[in-house]
Design a protein around this nucleic acid. Structure first.
Lengths: 350, 350
DNA sequence: GTGAAAGCGCTAACAC
DNA sequence: GTGTTAGCGCTTTCAC
């Protein structure tokens, strides 16, 4: 009985991957050696046209597809990178993720991604799972403040780039927006339009960007020699209930604030809702641009950053590393841009 | 020279994965057998506390992390699923993607995803790359109309679920929203508010959902015995310029439309912009809900579907298959929900 | 131009 | 409890 028949007939041995044919099967059916199949599959030279045809026929007939798991094991490169961020569905991170994907694609790599849900333990679990898969590199939007768990991985050669927020307690490439300057300029913009009592509502101050934006707010107030009352700064979750309660508190009383600076897009949206219910105009500048901001009434003035650009830069840096660049870790800071649309130019209510 | 020393010293052989230690290295350093290390790493029983401690120490010292590529090769399961959709960053698909991720996570699987950019060739390329990685299953939002290329993969046991749009020329599980009924009811809503000249602007009719929604529009008009002029139906890319041009054409002249039904969220948003520039009110109902729809002026009436729910259902179906369910492929249709907010209840301008 | 043999790092099966 | 062996499906090396 020739090999060809043996491969096709008989009691099929329990095979893995739902009984997929292997190169060996293809070789047997085509009556060639294993290596020849490998050559054809990988488009290597040194196969006669006739042999190649026979192998191709065998591949099609058997429905063969190369098993990249085995290939990866042998080659040591997975041609995949990992992306861990807070929430894939967040309108800020979705374009970042998409940009990373495009860069990966341009380099022939697949993207594995996961949402940390702002939970440090989950971030670590995801990152280490990706390392176990031997992704070639990682792009991380940190949820955790301590990344020493990554030291063995980085030492072992996993390229790592942090984006949007810096890593904790380790040195690594990072791509950030200038949160401090952005917030400072946004608040200065409100001050320039006559506001003296300005509230700041931000995300949890443990988050680097949130902290920086709060610093920016304080810097602008101080630069204008304006006092900041205790109740004017609120930081916590971006839960709408919390934001609403803080906003309403800041607005109450004769000394209520006449303007808000919102620390991120979720806070901004909640504030838009709160302010829409008031009978007096209250100014608003928000950090992060968002879709339809220009269609609201009044249109919302924002400090915009470009998430897709952050993602592109981070992924670019990552692939530079993968191609061998080994200069010291660098921090790249992207500027923000104030977009005046109306809500930030409202004068203080009298 | 004992094994321990041999592993640690001497001219390090060129190893892969950036010179990562293997179980063999861990075993040598701990002075135990390979299988014992495997047991400890995988939390299997049958290791004495003392041995376990030694192995753990060795793991930490060496910075060992199990190579899942090798594990996958051996076990035949990758504990990962693939998701291919149009655009990860689209506000409709991002929550779908996130929902699939959550279900995957609950089943201990990672998610590899890719954007097809509505390009059939790119969809196929991505899907086959995922199959080569031997993902356990696939969730696909089709860009292509012909999925026969998947036949060998499905035959080989790759579980596949289509979501948002049905597959072409193959049988497979599918999870859809009821586009036809949703559009029909949305248009009937406009008719109920007195409109007789209603324009439909949709996505390319080659897309299943776009086609169904157009059918729904026509069905509602016919049910009300309303004529549909040639110029009242426009289908094409969701490019804002195209949508704007079509809308302006439909609005012009004494017999211009008094209301629009928009085929998806991108069209809706462009129409909101166009209508905001007019000096007369024009009614609008859009397919797909979107953030801030309730804050626009007027608030936008929509036919809502729940993308996260679609994703959850699809992923749930996928894991049912992975757990062995082999009943015939099924189609699950989710109902849509009309949310009246104002723009769809405007009467026809006189 | 082609193929045989070794081995990537792990787990399964079985021995001790 | 612990270790040895074989082999997952591929690529690498080297011989023909």
């Amino acid at each position: 009985m020739p090999d060809t028949a043996r491969a096709a007939a008989g009691p099929t041995p329990e095979r893995r991957y739902g009984n997929r044919p292997t190169m060996k099967d293809v070789a047997a059916r085509a009556g060639v050696g294993l290596k020849t199949v490998s050559r054809v599959v990988n488009g290597e030279a040194g196969v006669s046209p006739d042999t190649e045809r026979r192998v191709q026929e065998s591949i099609t007939a058997l429905g063969f597809r190369r098993n990249d798991s085995a290939r990866i094991l042998r080659k040591g490169r997975t041609a995949s990178i990992g992306l861990v961020l807070e929430d894939l569905a967040d309108p800020f991170y979705a374009p970042l993720s998409r940009a990373v994907e495009e860069v990966a694609r341009a380099h022939g790599a697949l993207l594995i991604n996961g949402s940390s849900a702002e939970d440090p333990a989950r971030e670590q679990e995801l990152v280490l799972a990706l390392c176990a898969r031997r992704v070639d590199g990682l792009v991380i939007v940190p949820a955790s403040g301590d990344h020493r768990y990554l030291e063995p991985e980085i030492a072992a050669g996993v390229a790592t780039v942090f984006v949007d927020r810096p890593p904790g307690h380790i040195e690594a490439d990072q791509v950030l927006a200038d949160s401090f300057a952005g917030a400072r300029d946004g608040v200065a913009h409100l001050i320039a339009h006559g506001h003296r009592r300005i509230g700041f509502i931000g995300d949890r101050p443990g988050i680097h960007t949130a902290h920086e934006r709060q610093r920016g707010y304080l810097a602008a107030m101080e630069a204008a020699q304006l006092p900041v009352h205790d109740g004017w700064v609120a930081a916590g979750t971006t839960d709408p209930e919390r934001v609403r309660a803080d906003a309403e508190r800041m607005l109450s009383g004769p000394d209520g604030v006449t303007a808000f600076f919102a620390g991120n897009n979720r806070v901004t949206v909640t504030l838009v809702r709160v302010l829409a219910e008031l009978d007096r105009p209250v100014a608003l500048v928000g950090f992060d641009d968002f879709e339809l901001a220009d269609l609201l009434v009044p249109p919302v003035t924002v400090v915009a950053q470009d998430p897709a650009q952050l993602g592109r830069t981070a992924a670019g840096l990552l692939f530079r590393r993968l191609e061998g660049a080994n200069d010291p870790p660098r921090r790249m800071t992207h500027p923000t841009r104030l977009i005046a649309r109306g809500s930030g130019e409202l004068p203080p209510a009298t």
